[in-house]
Design a protein around this nucleic acid. Structure first.
Lengths: 151, 151
DNA sequence: CTAAAGCCTGACATTGACGTTAGAGTCAAG
DNA sequence: CTTGACTCTAACGTCAATGTCAGGCTTTAG
């Protein structure tokens, strides 16, 4: 399968596919003339890539994860130490992702409340209620007491 | 409260606070000399902004949403038609957000599976199982309706 | 009063994740 | 063989969200 075909089948632009390769997320073989040749499995792979990127996962992590998705298991490090390190990295991202999802869910609720407010005429002094939207922050030191309701 | 204070209390850099203002997400009053003066409530507001941006919500939507969060309800359109249009816009974003969350949850599961694979030596030919990761794709729309952009 | 600290605007730099264009080679059909 | 569709690389453009720096006011502490 050539790049145009893969593009058509995945919905990803040709440019994106080349970009993914540039980032090490895809590794098509090449013909003598340099054309990229993709496998059937790459259709799946691209879907996963797009999914993970849309999730705003750091592309490095996507790359790590993808190594396992492509050709099965071939690239899991031999040394237990390496494996543990990798697992920890991924676990960290997993935790961040979890936080992020929770944050998004709170945002969604907030947004839903707003929509309801706008639809139903009820726009009285009653505040939408506590959204408790926790900010997902990687490693920023924070001074002082956190966000509270000041009213 | 001046910009440095707000920065310290929210963890957002001074630059970010000015940027949020540029985007219409904050609207501090100014002293005669031009210094920005923030209200106590802006601490909360910034937290929400950062939350929503970290959720990768389109900043236009964040802006729309924030209008309601700032001074309560003041800015809900009078005309039912305007209100309906706004509600629809927000509803659309709400739906997208829902999709996005679901996609993220699938990504998380996928990632969790990978972590498990790496930790436990089990890396046999058995694939991690279908992740069913649906890609969140928004049509190539650029010029939004009422979502005012500066500049 | 003076110097340091804080703030102002403006502008350029950066990082992803692409889009777009340009010039040139390649492949399949007529 | 020629044409047109497809592909290649290379490079510049863009947008959002920030960082950073410069040059010039303002405020505050001593």
């Amino acid at each position: 399968m050539r790049i145009g075909d893969l593009s058509a089948r995945t919905g990803a632009s040709v440019r994106m596919l080349r970009y993914y390769e540039e980032q090490g997320l895809l590794a098509p073989v090449r013909t003598d003339s340099g054309y990229r040749i993709y496998q059937e499995s790459d259709v799946d792979r691209v879907a996963r890539i797009r999914c993970m990127l849309s999730a705003a996962l750091p592309s490095g992590v996507v790359g790590e994860a993808l190594k396992f998705l492509l050709d099965g298991r071939a690239v899991i490090p031999d040394e237990p130490a390496d494996r543990a390190r990798l697992a920890d990295t991924l676990q960290g991202e997993l935790d961040l992702l979890t936080e992020k999802i929770e944050s998004l869910q709170r945002s969604r609720e907030l947004l839903a409340t707003i929509v309801a407010d706008v639809r139903g005429d009820v726009v009285g002094p009653g505040r939408p209620g506590d959204p408790g939207c926790a900010v997902v922050r990687r490693s920023v030191r924070k001074a002082g007491p956190a966000v509270g309701q000041t009213r």
